[in-house]
Amino acid sequence: MPNVMLRNNAAGELTFYITKKDHEETVVALEHAGPGTWGGEMELSDGSRFYLEPFAQPPKLPLTVRVKRL
């Protein structure tokens, strides 16, 4: 369950940053992208997949969350 920071980069893409590893990837697919439920399964640009407990509303970014590696 790594701690990651989600943020929108200058190009408007959602980025995924693993604080401990200085590892930054863009999110290429998000299960629930809002409006309404936001989160769920996400796929990163390097092919790895994570699960984020969905929010009822899209949260304000940047935000540090805990995710599960799938």
Binding site: M5, R7, Y17, T19, P62, L63, T64
Partner: peptide, 9 residues
């Protein structure tokens, strides 16, 4: 970058 990310969040 660490503190900058924190300031942003």
């Amino acid at each position: 970058n660490y503190i900058s990310r924190h300031l942003e969040e």
